[in-house]
């Protein structure tokens, strides 16, 4: 199924958890995740399922003033 990940179309398996999405992305460092503008706490990554069409944002800290 398709989701919108950081503004771009992205394919994930049906019934995919946030945890497995993260593993597929091979992210490093600290990040935070929002699905349809709701923050997903780290403790919910393994239980939270992704639905088709979800708008997912994964953010990190970068240089800024």
């Amino acid at each position: 199924m398709k989701v919108l990940l950081n503004g771009s179309s992205y394919s994930v398996k049906n019934n995919c958890s946030v945890d497995s999405l993260i593993k597929n992305l091979d992210l490093n460092g600290k990040y935070a995740i929002e699905i349809n503008q709701n923050i997903i706490p780290r403790s919910q990554y393994s239980n939270k399922r992704i639905n088709s069409g979800d708008k997912i944002e994964i953010v990190q800290a970068i240089g800024g003033g």
Partner: peptide
């Protein structure tokens, strides 16, 4: 120290160190 919050670059710049590291 201030930082900005922005989208993670998916699948790019794998070797770029994370600011908070």
């Amino acid at each position: 120290v201030t930082v900005a919050i922005r989208r993670t670059n998916i699948g790019q710049e794998k070797n770029e160190p994370n600011l908070l590291d």
